[in-house]
């Protein structure tokens, strides 16, 4: 700024006004762009209730959080099993009861996606991970919370499957597709696991 600008202003006010308008327009466009640009965020949909897939989701989530990203995890359908602390049967329809009976009661009961053999595979994988000093899924979940990872349970699938809030762990958020999209549209990375 300074003398040069003012001298020109004295010479040709209309030109300065045109410039000012142009700058104003550019600032407005920049603001709009900034509002729409991605932030340091990662959004993950956990659809699967398979131990191996869920582990992958939590490794990515905790790693991203450690790297300074703001992480949101959306648990829907089979993924809700990860958040369960127990099973209740009262007040459920027959099919909901059947589903509850055949679903994992807690994250400890999650099957693996391949070679599960009625839970033997999952037990074996957990044993192998322990042997290699890899954190257990439960440790990862606690760690994710510690790192400030947001966990959102899908309200619609929870309702359909008849899973009660009292069956899920505490300190969860509840939301729908828009709450996921609001995050994922602002994220650099969105995953569906």
């Amino acid at each position: 700024m300074g003398a040069g600008f003012n001298i020109r202003a004295n010479e040709d006010p209309s030109r300065v006004q045109a410039l000012e308008e142009k700058v104003e327009g550019l600032v407005k466009r920049l603001e709009q762009l900034e509002e729409r640009s991605a932030e340091d965020r990662v959004a993950i949909v956990v659809f699967s209730g398979d131990l191996d897939r869920v582990l992958a989701a939590f490794v990515i989530a905790t790693g991203a959080a450690a790297m300074g990203q703001q992480v949101s995890m959306f648990f829907t359908f089979w993924g809700l099993s990860v958040l369960k602390k127990g099973t209740e049967f009262s007040g459920k329809t027959i099919s909901q009861k059947a589903m509850a009976l055949m679903s994992p009661g807690t994250s400890l009961d999650l099957p693996v996606s391949k070679m599960n053999y009625f839970g033997m595979g999952a037990k074996m994988l957990r044993g192998m991970m322990k042997h290699k000093n890899v954190s257990s899924l439960e440790d990862m979940i606690a760690l994710a919370r510690d790192l400030g990872v947001r966990m959102i349970a899908c309200e619609m699938s929870r309702d359909v499957m008849g899973i009660k809030e009292s069956e899920l762990v505490d300190a969860l958020e509840y939301g729908g597709v828009a709450s996921f999209l609001a995050d994922s549209l602002k994220s650099r990375t969105s995953l569906f696991i």
Partner: peptide, 14 residues
Amino acid sequence: RGMNCPMPLVNARK
């Protein structure tokens, strides 16, 4: 030492 992904990173960050 002995830690596996992602623990070295997570603990280093902490």
